[in-house]
């Protein structure tokens, strides 16, 4: 176990996987000479050379399509999309090709592709550079979509992603890169489709993923220290496949649920989870499921407007205060 940053965990994992399997290669804008826009691939070009670490021009549709094609011949591309926003240019290759090829050709050719990309707002990058688009992908059968919240899961899920035989959208977060945590040594794999109870509790359940899960955990711990509510935190980790069982069991136990997400509220992850909970745990609910999400506006540049549009710990606390059972204090 070593205590390292999220960034370091990703960097180490990429290095280990590049060493382990010659079919694994990296591709993306500025990942080599520039060492990654967010330095996730620092040092890898030097260590593995330009055959394994491929700098691309700004041609997202082209190089994602290339990655899909190379995967059809058995390579295992790990592509970086500089930020989540730019994936829009490659949607056709992902939606109509990566996600369809295995099924449409009767299972004859898998597409073992990983697309890593960070989402996240809050840095005044404004409307086109601050989006969280996980829902687009979580909607598509044929894709796996994962969004770890801590360095250990980042490592374990990136390994699983690279060894998985399907296209995986691996969602990172600008606000998580510098966060630290202990990471198991060696060949540590976290399976997809298994949520994690990040903290046990009895009063209510917060269901979240990525940076919001980390934030929810902080809030829950603080409330416990302050002896207020006992909050259970379910860190989904994997959005598709979704671990319904863990969600439902937790809600059956606490009777109350908040979904905490950083994308827009309408048609979001929260909508899917709220539907699941009412389908499978209706009789156990003591209150309607709450959704805490970003305000539905293209993110503005100006700081005061941006702050008003983003969700965060304060919004979560407000929701907890509204939802938590009255019997306590």
């Amino acid at each position: 176990m070593a205590e390292i940053s999220f960034r370091q965990a990703l960097n180490d994992t990429l290095r280990e996987e590049l060493k382990r399997d010659d079919n694994v290669f990296l591709m993306g804008e500025e990942i080599g000479v520039f060492e990654g826009s967010y330095k996730i691939t620092a040092g890898l070009l030097k260590e593995f050379g330009a055959r394994r670490v491929v700098d691309t021009p700004i041609a997202e549709n082209g190089f994602i399509g290339m990655a899909v094609g190379s995967a059809m011949l058995g390579l295992r591309p790990v592509v970086e999309i500089m930020t989540f926003n730019f994936i829009a240019l490659a949607m056709d290759e992902i939606l109509n090709h990566a996600a369809k090829i295995h099924y449409m050709f009767g299972g004859q050719t898998p597409v073992p592709l990983v697309i890593r990309t960070p989402g996240g707002g809050g840095q005044q990058l404004s409307a086109t550079h601050s989006q969280n688009l996980e829902v687009w992908f979580a909607h598509i059968p044929g894709l796996h979509v994962v969004a770890p919240s801590n360095p250990a899961d980042a490592k374990g899920m990136l390994k699983t992603a690279i060894r998985n035989n399907n296209p995986v959208i691996f969602i990172e977060h600008l606000g998580l890169y510098n966060t630290r945590g202990s990471v198991p040594d060696g060949d540590y794999l976290v399976p997809f489709g298994k949520a994690k109870i990040a903290k046990e509790g009895t009063d209510l359940t917060i269901i979240s993923y990525s940076r919001m899960a980390a934030m929810a955990l902080d809030v829950a711990r603080r409330l416990e220290q302050e002896n207020k509510w006992s909050v259970e935190v379910v860190d989904l980790r994997s959005l598709r496949p979704l671990d319904k069982e863990t969600i439902v069991n937790s809600v059956k136990k606490t009777g109350r649920a908040i979904v905490f997400e950083e994308d827009w509220r309408s048609y979001g992850i929260g909508a899917e989870i709220a539907a699941t909970v009412q389908e499978e745990a209706f009789d156990y609910l003591d209150a309607p499921v709450k959704r805490v999400a970003n305000v539905e506006v293209p993110l503005p540049y100006s700081k005061p407007l941006e702050s008003a549009a983003l969700t965060g710990a304060k919004q979560l606390l407000d929701a907890i205060n509204e939802l938590a059972p009255r019997r306590r204090r």
Binding site: I58, N85, S126, T128
Partner: peptide, 26 residues
């Protein structure tokens, strides 16, 4: 010139016929 909504990458002025700066390459 974009009422604070756009910032450095997104300047606009119909009057000056600048139909926008854009942050998505291309």
């Amino acid at each position: 010139c974009s009422f604070g909504r756009g910032g450095s990458m997104h300047m606009f002025s119909l009057e000056h016929r600048l139909l926008g700066g854009y942050g998505i390459v291309g």
